[in-house]
């Protein structure tokens, strides 16, 4: 285990060492809310961050497994391609934004715009999510064990949303859909990968696109 102490190492030195690493485990101490910690990693390494981070933690991640023993600021795992980010605390706005793959697990709450424009990532939130989550989400799965805020899944494409608690309101073109056997399987897998205990696949409702915004409706021509 190699340790980086951010009270002495610079952020650039640390990120560049992690980006060059091809194996092993690393520990980052005294993150003190710094931005862009563990960004752009591209190998199967393990990184543990002892504390809370600022903006863009584990952004653009490929293959690496990053574990934050605290909370993360805005844009965690933004544009993640693969690998895993686990957040023990809360995540600020737009976590998992535009992420193409991998798994994002938030053990606390995630605030607004969680999974905005997600493109294939799997996101598991143990707590609640804020307003405008999964806005224009294109593919992947968002599983929420708590409640969802206003306008969930507004202008949604083909991402699947699973919520156990209450949904304050659904966004334009987002509707509740039937949970079929294949969805129960997906949820069971997400619960396991997301380290969720105390919830069953049957507890969740599925939401998805009504697919009414995909094509231009001539009746709306007057609006333009």
């Amino acid at each position: 285990m190699t340790e980086f102490d951010l009270t002495s190492a610079t952020l650039r030195e640390m990120n560049s060492s992690l980006q060059d690493a091809t194996s092993g485990t690393y520990s980052i101490v005294n993150p003190r809310g710094a931005h862009a910690i563990a960004c752009g990693l591209k190998s199967e390494i393990g990184v543990t961050i002892a504390g809370s981070t600022g903006y863009y933690c584990a952004g653009m991640n490929q293959l690496a497994r990053v574990h934050v023993k605290g909370s993360v600021g805005p844009g965690a795992a933004e544009n993640m391609m693969s690998g895993k980010l686990i957040v023990e605390g809360d995540a600020s706005q737009y976590c998992g934004a535009t992420a193409h793959g991998g798994t994002l697990v938030v053990k606390g709450n995630a605030s607004s715009r969680c999974g905005i424009s997600m493109k294939g990532v799997d996101i598991v939130v143990h707590g609640n999510i804020g307003h405008m989550s999964a806005f224009m989400a294109q593919s992947g799965n968002l599983l929420v064990c708590g409640d969802a805020g206003d306008a969930l899944g507004d202008s949604l494409y083909e991402a699947r949303l699973f919520v156990k608690g209450a949904v304050k309101s659904l966004g334009a073109d987002c509707i509740e859909k039937e949970m079929r056997a294949e969805h129960l399987e997906i949820v069971a897998d997400l619960l396991e990968r997301g380290e969720v205990t105390g919830a069953k696949p049957e507890d969740f409702k599925r939401y998805g696109s009504a697919r009414q915004l995909y094509n231009f409706n001539i009746d709306n021509v007057g609006a333009y």
């Binding site: 003190r32 809310g33 710094a34 809370s52 600022g54 903006y55 909370s71 600021g73 805005p74 600020s92 706005q93 605030s111 607004s112 804020g130 307003h131």
Partner: peptide
């Protein structure tokens, strides 16, 4: 709520910061 905000409370104080960094 695009503009960031973080609150922290202990028995000694309530603190506000645009980012957690300000509170460390």
């Amino acid at each position: 709520a695009c503009k960031p905000a973080v609150l922290a409370e202990t028995d000694q104080y309530v603190a506000f910061g645009s980012e957690y960094r300000a509170l460390v």
